[in-house]
């Protein structure tokens, strides 16, 4: 039985779990930064001037219409080649920020490139989900707020946005799930996340089936948990009247 053979030795399981840890940490950082950036872009598009709107729309169109793999190649291989060499050098040197209770380490360039690429990608999609949410709020709501004497920005901030976020929440969770899956592409730029770890375990043990099998289960588990969590939050946040 060359397929299963013995179970993976503990040290390879540790590799896979370390890779999974990086996948989770990267996903969490990307979801957080992507949400902030995406919602900021979305708001800018609603209340900003024409130039800002065009810039946001252009950014979103560009990011959403090119493959993430190509974007990661651009961030890792191309941007580093285009930046002035002094800056690349600085980005590549390890910097440590001592916080007293612990030190913050500057991430390796592949982590940085992966984070930036994934965050912009997630932000572009989240911005669109946010916009769909805003479009889902009935215009009468905004008109009523304006009639009550709120400024357009106040009406947006207090009336439209909270409802829009409630509508957009589940689609945004969908983007979080995509982010978890998308982190697998960073293995092509040398980031040691779960897919990378599974290929490394395969290289050393040749237990292809187990290496990919465990990685697949971990991905599915993470995606299922986040989805369930997102839905639970949505149920709790739903206004009392709308509860089924």
């Amino acid at each position: 039985m060359s397929l299963f053979g013995d179970l993976l030795a503990p040290r390879y399981l540790v590799w896979l779990l370390q890779g999974f840890g990086i996948t989770l940490a990267l996903s969490a950082a990307v979801c957080l930064a992507g949400t902030v950036l995406g919602l900021a872009a979305c708001c800018l598009r609603e209340v900003g001037g024409p130039a800002a709107r065009r810039a946001v729309a252009g950014f979103i169109g560009l990011v959403r219409n090119t493959p993430l793999l190509v974007q990661l190649f651009v961030w890792y291989f191309a941007v580093a080649a285009l930046l002035p060499s002094g800056l690349t050098g600085w980005l590549n040197t390890p910097h440590t920020l001592d916080l007293g209770f612990g030190a913050l380490h500057w991430p390796a360039y592949e982590t940085l490139a992966g984070f930036v690429g994934l965050t912009l990608y997630a932000a572009a999609y989240i911005a669109e989900e946010g916009r769909a949410g805003i479009n889902g709020v009935r215009p009468a709501q905004r008109e009523a707020a304006l009639a009550l004497g709120l400024t357009p920005i106040q009406a947006f901030r207090h009336i439209v946005l909270p409802q829009a976020l409630r509508i957009a929440w589940l689609p945004i969770v969908g983007q979080y799930l995509n982010t978890i899956k998308n982190t697998s592409l960073t293995m092509t730029i040398g980031l040691a996340e779960l897919s990378y770890a599974s290929r490394q375990v395969e290289t050393e043990t040749f237990k292809t089936f187990q290496a990919f099998g465990i990685a697949t289960l971990l991905y599915i588990g993470a995606v299922a948990l986040v989805e369930a969590g997102g839905q639970a939050l949505a149920r709790r946040a739903a206004p009392a009247g709308s509860r089924a």
Partner: peptide, 9 residues
């Protein structure tokens, strides 16, 4: 299952 698995995998 098919929505949860990364396409690369």
């Amino acid at each position: 299952f098919f929505r949860a698995i990364p396409i690369v995998m």
